[in-house]
Computed example of a mutant assay.
Amino acid sequence: MDDLNPIQIAELRRRIEDELAELKALSEAGSEGSRPVELDQQSVGRISRMDAMQVQAMALASQKRRTARIDGLKSALGRLSEGEYGYCASCEEPIAFGRLKADPMARLCLACARLGET
């Protein structure tokens, strides 16, 4: 397996940066759904309030997943800058370009990832 070439690295960097920008925009737009649910029983019935609390919980869970993805993508950018991107964290062999295209945060080659599953 070969190391990544400069064109592949540029493509992956662009993909990571684009996804980061999209996730940050979604995080800013999604902050409204995670606001506390008001207790005013006069304007909102009990069932409606329960629905609002469920929507709030889903918004918070989505935000948590977005934050984790943002952190992972930032880490991948850091590895790119340090020249460590694209190498397996376990065996230190190059990670296939197709795997990195599918998940730019991948830290393990396919063989090591499969070993970890068992």
Score class of each variant (00 low, 15 high):
V44W: 00
E22N: 02
E93S: 07
S27D: 08
E93V: 15
K24G: 11
L100A: 11
E38C: 06
G86V: 04
G116I: 04
D40T: 15
R14H: 14
R69Q: 09
G86T: 04
R65Q: 11
P36E: 01
A57T: 06
R114K: 14
E38D: 10
I9S: 05
Q54E: 08
Q8E: 13
E11T: 11
A113R: 05
I7N: 11
G72E: 02
R79M: 07
E19R: 14
T67I: 08
D3E: 11
L80M: 15
A76L: 13
S81Y: 14
N5W: 00
R66F: 04
D51G: 13
G116Q: 13
D40S: 08
L20M: 14
E22D: 12
G30A: 13
A76S: 04
A25F: 10
S48C: 07
L12A: 01
L4P: 09
P36L: 02
P94L: 03
E17F: 00
R107F: 08
M58T: 02
M53L: 05
Q54G: 12
A25C: 10
C91R: 13
Y85L: 08
C112L: 04
S31A: 04
K24N: 07
L80A: 06
D2S: 06
E11S: 11
G78F: 06
D51P: 00
P6V: 12
A52V: 03
S90I: 12
